[in-house]
Design a protein around this nucleic acid. Structure first.
Lengths: 112, 112
DNA sequence: GTTGAAGTATGATCGGCGTCGAAGTATCGG
DNA sequence: CCGATACTTCGACGCCGATCATACTTCAAC
């Protein structure tokens, strides 16, 4: 049976432009406690973090789902480094799309 | 058969103190498009508005539900004036609990 | 190559939330 | 007292999203 190898699939995920951000997507993203925790941990981190470096009470596949929601909303940028997928906040793009929102959210999350 | 009139029930709803606001409740409240529209209309209004003065694509009982969610989150204050229930934003209390958040949300909602 | 580590894809489940309609309550105007 | 108006309450229903387990892919190290 011949090898049915498909072409190596594109591993670079799609990121929306700031003009395409919608408030609905942003809020849908941050309303979930797990995703909000990801945003806060990223905001506090000095450098990008891999998906596995977050300690969160969910399984890996669920985590993949959360990161996709955050990326498609425009909150984070993802890129591969080896087998690891790195994540960082898109602060400037968020600031451009919805000024003050990300700051207010992270600050609010830090209280209580 | 004697009148079975019960005592007139308390029509003044409960409002949480700013210290009791939670970000989760606020986000749960504003993530819904109908409720976010209410907040925006209230923010743009010069004076309190009655529940019925919002034009929204939902039934009356659904509207009641939305106003309760907003009130219990701390976003609005409600009081009766005759048969009408008036609503106003709790701007100062929101600012105290989560500085900048309400402004950022309303501004963001106004864009697009 | 093989093996292991890191994520991704898929399908199923399950609970919560937004919605409605119908019936109930409160207040105001005759 | 009699509507009429303005909301509320109560069930029921339907859908969407968070979660998981399993199987798969990709890359790195040896």
């Amino acid at each position: 049976m011949p090898a049915v190898r498909t072409e190596p699939q594109d591993r670079s995920p799609e990121h929306p432009a700031p003009e395409a951000f919608t408030l609905q997507q942003i809020l849908d993203a941050v309303v979930d406690p797990v995703r909000r925790s990801i945003v806060c941990q990223l905001s506090a981190a000095p450098s990008p973090k891999s998906c596995g470096s977050f300690d969160l009470p969910v399984g890996r596949s669920t985590l993949t789902h959360h990161f996709r929601v955050l990326r498609e909303a425009g909150l984070i940028r993802q890129y591969y480094a080896g087998t690891s997928r790195m994540n960082e906040l898109r602060r400037e793009d968020m600031e451009e799309a919805f000024p003050g929102l990300l700051d207010a959210l992270v600050t609010a999350a830090a209280r209580r």
